[in-house]
Write a protein that binds this DNA or RNA. Structure first.
Length: 566
RNA sequence: AGGGGCGUAGCUCAGUGGUAGAGCAGAGGCCUUUUAAGCCUAAGGUCGUGGGUUCGAUCCCCACCGCCCCUACCA
C-alpha cells in the first residue's frame, strides 16, 4: 500500500500549483509504491511519481525554463542531421578537416550524459540509435542560453545548432551556438553505467529499456527487419498479404485453448483466433493462389521463455504446390533471412552456432530411431514403427526403461493411437536433440487433422516441422482439400474431446472445400521464435515489446481517492 | 501446477543477533576540452510483507507476496 501520510507531508513542502495546465502529464499506471494522487493543492499534476524529490524538482526546473521565455512543450525542431547521420557522415573526419569545413548542423536528442564544469559543459545526445557529444560554452551561447543549460537534466530532449569539431580527446562533437529546449523529463533515466538491469522493469516499462539498453533497441530493429524481409521474400514470389479475422465464431486451425470474448450487439461469444489457417485456405478457394498473413494468434495456455499468450505468426499458402516444394522454399528462406539479418548463414545462439545454410531432413520415424537412447536397448526399426500395434509396444518398451532410469517419461493421457505414440515418443526424447536447423517430415495422420495423407501410406501425412535449437519454429503441409475426409477428421477430433480441441464443426470451412480447393501447400512460421534465434535472445519476452506479465499486485487498483481520504 | 534462486537508499550492490554501509543518481558550492570528469557539503532506509523465537531480529524460524530459472501443457 502507498504510504499516504508520508506523501501528503512531502506534498505540502513542494506544491506544484504554479505550473500551468499545459504541463500536465499523462502517465501510465505503475505499481502502488511508485505513484500516488496529488493532494487538493496540486490539481495541475494529479498523478505523482516516484522518486518524488526529483519529480518535484524537475517540475520546478520546467517552471524556471518557462520563466526564461521558453515554451514548456515546443511543437517541433527542424534538424539537418540525426545524431546517427552525423556519426555516419563525419565519424572519420579529422580535426583539421572539420575546422576547415566548419560543418553547420542542427540536431536533437535525449540527454544521456551531463557534465557541467563551471562556465562550460559536455552532454551526450542520444537519438536515432546513436550518440553525439555537444559542447556548450557560456561565452558562446550567452547568459540566457547558459541559464537554460543549467536547468537541464539527464533525460531531457534538446536541439542544438552549431558546427562540428573534435575535442582534445579527439571526440567528434558539436560546438553549440544555439541551444533549444524541447522536452523535460520529470523522472530520471535508469542508472548510467549499470543501465537498466531489472528485467521486470525492462518488460513493463519498455521505453526505459529502449533508451538504456542498446542491445534491446537492436533486437526490435532486427525484428522489424525480419518481417520486412519476409514480406519482400513473399511479395517477390507473387504472394499477396491479407488480414483475416482475429475474432472467430468457431475456433479452429490448431489444437489450443482459446480466449473467449463477447460481442454485445450480436450477443454472441467469439474466440480470439488460435490460427488464421482456415480463413487463409478459404482465400485459396477464392482464387488467391498465393497468400500470406503476418499477425497475432492468441492461445490461453502457459507463459514461459518460449510462450507468450499472444504471438506473431506468418502463415502462407501456395496453390499447386506440395510440402516438398515448401521444404525447398524454406531452405532458401531461412538461409536468405539469416544472411540478410545477421550478415551470415551461421548464427550464434547462446553457446550454439546455428547453420542456416543447410537444413537436415529427417522423417519423424527416422528421428525416433536416430535419437533412441542407447541405454534403452536396441532402437526400434522402421518396420516395427510401421507395424500394426508397433508404436504402442515401442512406447511401452521405452517407458519400461525410462521410469526406473529416471529419463523423461512418455506420459500418455488415456489410450493413444499408433500415430499419437509416434508423436509422443518424438517429443519425449528426440525433439530437444534437433539443434541444427532440421526439417522433420511425415507426421502421423492421427496428429495432423489438416494435412493430406501420403499416397502410399495413409497413416502418414505430407507434413513437416522445422526445429532449431530444440524449438519448433515452423509447421507446414500439403493441405487436406478433400471435404469428406476433412469432415471425418474434424468429427474424430470433436469426439476425442478435451480442452485443446475444437468443440464445434466449422461447417463453412467444409463447404468452402466442397467448392473445390486446388492442391495447396501451406505453412506457419513463428516470428517471435525466429526472432529469438536471429537476435541471440534466450527468452521470448526479449523479442516482444510488451510481453504479457502478471499484473502488479494492488498497484493498478490503488484507489484514486486514497491520498485525499487519508 | 511442482522444484531451485533472488528481494537492503531512486539505481547497482556490500554487511551484521545490539541504533544501517559504499559507488552512482538527486540537492547546494567550486571548476571554460570533459567523457564512469573531479573536489567540498548536506540529505536520503518500516533491510519485500505478516507472524514467531529472543531482553533485543534487517540477520534465526514459519507463512505469504513478487520476480527469474528449470520441469509439465503449448508454437
Amino acid at each position: 500500500m502507498v504510504n499516504v501520510k508520508k506523501y501528503a507531508r512531502v506534498s505540502e513542502r513542494y506544491t506544484t500549483k504554479g505550473i500551468s495546465a499545459r504541463t500536465r502529464i499523462v502517465a501510465p499506471k505503475q505499481r502502488g509504491p511508485l505513484y500516488s494522487r496529488a493532494t487538493f493543492f496540486e490539481r495541475n499534476c494529479p498523478l505523482q511519481f516516484e522518486p518524488r524529490d526529483q519529480f518535484e524538482q524537475r517540475q520546478k526546473k520546467l517552471e524556471q525554463i518557462q520563466a526564461l521565455g521558453h515554451a514548456a512543450y515546443p511543437h517541433e525542431f527542424r534538424w539537418t542531421h540525426t545524431p546517427a547521420a552525423i556519426v555516419a557522415e563525419f565519424g572519420k573526419a579529422e580535426a583539421a578537416e572539420l575546422e576547415a569545413k566548419k560543418v553547420e548542423v542542427r540536431t536533437a536528442g535525449r540527454i544521456v550524459s551531463y557534465r557541467l564544469m563551471g562556465k562550460a559543459g559536455f552532454v551526450h545526445l542520444q537519438g536515432s540509435g546513436a550518440r553525439i557529444q555537444i559542447y556548450v560554452r557560456k561565452d558562446v551561447v550567452g547568459e540566457a542560453g547558459f541559464a537554460l543549460f543549467h536547468l537541464l537534466d539527464m533525460g531531457d530532449s534538446v536541439g542544438v545548432r552549431g558546427h562540428l569539431f573534435r575535442t582534445k580527446t579527439n571526440e567528434l562533437s558539436v560546438w553549440v551556438e544555439e541551444l533549444t529546449f524541447l522536452s523535460k523529463a520529470f523522472l530520471p533515466l535508469p542508472e548510467k553505467w549499470h543501465g537498466l538491469a531489472d528485467v521486470e522493469i525492462r518488460y513493463r516499462q519498455r521505453y526505459l529499456d529502449l533508451i538504456a539498453n542498446e542491445k534491446s533497441r537492436e533486437v526490435f530493429v532486427t525484428r522489424a527487419r525480419i518481417t520486412q524481409e519476409l514480406r519482400k521474400f513473399f511479395d517477390a514470389r507473387g504472394y499477396i498479404e491479407v488480414e483475416t479475422p482475429m475474432m472467430h465464431p468457431v475456433v479452429g486451425g490448431a489444437a489450443a485453448r482459446p480466449f473467449v470474448t463477447h460481442h454485445n450487439t450480436l450477443d454472441i461469444d467469439l474466440f480470439m483466433r488460435i490460427a488464421p489457417e482456415l480463413y487463409l485456405k478459404r482465400l485459396t478457394v477464392g482464387g488467391f493462389d498465393r497468400v500470406y498473413e503476418i499477425n497475432r494468434n492468441f492461445r490461453n495456455e502457459g507463459i514461459s521463455t518460449q510462450h507468450n499468450p499472444e504471438f506473431t505468426m506468418l502463415e502462407f499458402y501456395e496453390a499447386y504446390s506440395n510440402y516438398r516444394d515448401l521444404m525447398d522454399l524454406n531452405e532458401e528462406l531461412f538461409a536468405e533471412l539469416a544472411k540478410k539479418v545477421t550478415g551470415s548463414t551461421v548464427v550464434k545462439y547462446g553457446e550454439l552456432e546455428l547453420n542456416f545454410g543447410k537444413m537436415e531432413r529427417l522423417s519423424m520415424r527416422e528421428a525416433i530411431i536416430k535419437y533412441w537412447p542407447a541405454e534403452a536397448g536396441a532402437a526400434p526399426t522402421a518396420e516395427e514403427l510401421a507395424a500394426v500395434g508397433g508404436p504402442t509396444r515401442i512406447g511401452e518398451r521405452y517407458n519400461a526403461w525410462a521410469k526406473p532410469a529416471g529419463a523423461p517419461y512418455a506420459a500418455a493421457k488415456g489410450v493413444l493411437s499408433a500415430g499419437q505414440w509416434i508423436g509422443l515418443l518424438f517429443e519425449t526424447f528426440a525433439e530437444a536433440k534437433l539443434v541444427q536447423p532440421t526439417i522433420l517430415y511425415d507426421f502421423p495422420t492421427d496428429i495432423s487433422p489438416l494435412s493430406k495423407q501420403k499416397p502410399d501410406d495413409p497413416t502418414l501425412t505430407e507434413r513437416f516441422e522445422i526445429y532449431v535449437a530444440g524449438m519448433e519454429v515452423a509447421n507446414g503441409f500439403s493441405e487436406l482439400n478433400d471435404p469428406a475426409e476433412q469432415e471425418r477428421r474434424f468429427l474424430a477430433q470433436i469426439a476425442q474431446g478435451g480442452d485443446e480441441v475444437p468443440k464445434q464443426l466449422d461447417v463453412d470451412y467444409i463447404r468452402a472445400l466442397a467448392h473445390g480447393m486446388p492442391p495447396t501447400a501451406g505453412e506457419g512460421i513463428g516470428i517471435d521464435r525466429l526472432t529469438m534465434l536471429l537476435t541471440d535472445s534466450q527468452s521470448i519476452r526479449d523479442v516482444i515489446l510488451f510481453p504479457q506479465l502478471r499484473p502488479i499486485a494492488g498497484g493498478a487498483e490503488e484507489s484514486p481517492n486514497s491520498a485525499e481520504t487519508a
